[in-house]
Simulated assay, not measured.
Amino acid sequence: MTTDTPDMRTVHVALGSRAYDILIGGGLLASAGDTLARRFPGARAAIVTDENVAVRHAATLKQSLEGAGIATATITIAPGERSKSFAVLQQVVDEVLAARLERGDVVIALGGGVVGDLAGFVSGIVRRGMAFVQVPTSLLAQVDSSVGGKTGINTAHGKNLVGVFQQPGLVIADSDVLDTLPEREFRAGYAEVVKYGLIDRPDFFAWLEANWRDIFSGGSARVEAIAVSCQAKADVVARDEFEAGDRALLNLGHTFGHALEAATGYDSARLVHGEGVAIGMAMAHRFSSRMNLASPDDAARVEAHLSAVGLPVAVSEISGDLPGPERMLDYIAQDKKVSRGSLTFILTRGIGRSFVARDVPASEVLSFLKENLPS
């Protein structure tokens, strides 16, 4: 990672001929046109965004692109996880084709994880692959979903079950746009920041415990947290691009979290992705303690920090009814992290000591769910 200033960072994702940079800092949205014109000379662009982000940021990006001579079409979708669907995928594909964009042109994802996942999938399948740029506008997208090339949509069977690996050519993470996020959405993204400390960076987790208020208020602490998170993910992706080994560690908390999202019907009023991850990470640490892999003190420490920033840590904090333990186990078994029917979880031997646990007995998971789901 190269450091330009405390408020501007570049993280390199080392993938050989498909390597790319993550630019992190304030004011990057307004200069995006010049940046893209240098890296994609002669290209035109389709900006894929959602209705909420479009109101706040689409004009700035479009003006920057067109000021740099990049002809631009804007495609707007409804906000929320339910837009990661076959129907919306078809809509965006049709609009990209109607704009007569060619293979060498660029699909730009301007938005959070939903927009990034959907637009990335579109770029991977239209004309058998177009250039792709991520301009993430949520904390969650800046530190997680915009990096690593995993794209896709949801189905009734579960989350992200249809998609492709499509690496971006560039990620532009403007830390200033996070000031426009609702507090709940910023907190949800922070869960993914915490995840990197819990996987294998215990010193980073301790730094977060001491500095989270400064991260929430902005400035150099925020840029630092985003840069460390992106570097952590970039290191893993460079070792294991297609999730055959180490990259599975990035799913800490996600198997429980994805099951909870499916159980709530992807209703963001009840649960957003980062909140599901927060509950999932707390559950993964409690389950690790239950399996005598880690101290209950570690689980308590994780829960204390997540609760301090306002994130949920228990299923009981989700409003409305939820399926029973047996149905929740079905959602877990449908998750894409299951291989040949065996239950796979990311568990831990302590803070920053996560590992891939394969062949976890379903009976143990069911018993744990019975203890943790509201009666």
Rank of each mutant, 00 (worst) to 15 (best):
M1H: 15
T5L: 14
P6K: 04
H12Y: 13
L15K: 06
G16E: 13
G16F: 13
Y20T: 13
G25Y: 09
G27R: 04
A37N: 02
F40D: 04
P41A: 13
A43S: 15
A45S: 10
I47Q: 09
I47L: 10
A54I: 00
A54W: 07
R56K: 12
Q63T: 15
S64G: 08
L65E: 02
G67K: 04
I77W: 00
R82K: 14
Q91R: 15
D94L: 13
L97S: 10
A99W: 12
D105F: 05
I108L: 14
L110T: 06
L110H: 06
D117Y: 04
A119Q: 05
V122L: 01
R127G: 06
A131W: 00
V133I: 03
A141S: 10
V143P: 01
G148I: 07
K150R: 05
T151P: 06
H157D: 15
H157G: 14
P168N: 03
L170T: 01
I172C: 05
D179W: 07
E185N: 06
A191K: 05
K195A: 01
I199R: 00
W207D: 08
E209V: 11
N211M: 07
R213H: 08
R213I: 01
D214G: 03
D214M: 09
G218Q: 09
S220T: 15
S220F: 01
S229Y: 06
C230D: 09
D240M: 13
G245D: 13
A259K: 05
E261L: 12
E261W: 08
E261Y: 11
A262R: 12
A263Y: 03
A263E: 03
H273K: 07
G274N: 05
G276L: 11
A278E: 10
A282C: 14
M283I: 02
S288Y: 08
L293R: 03
D298R: 07
A304P: 03
H305P: 06
S307E: 15
V309A: 12
G310I: 09
G310Y: 10
V313H: 00
A314Y: 01
L322A: 06
P323Q: 08
P323G: 09
Y331F: 15
I332K: 01
I332D: 02
A333N: 10
F345V: 02
T348Q: 07
G350I: 11
G352D: 05
R358Y: 00
D359H: 13
D359T: 00
S367G: 15
F368N: 04
E371S: 11
N372V: 13
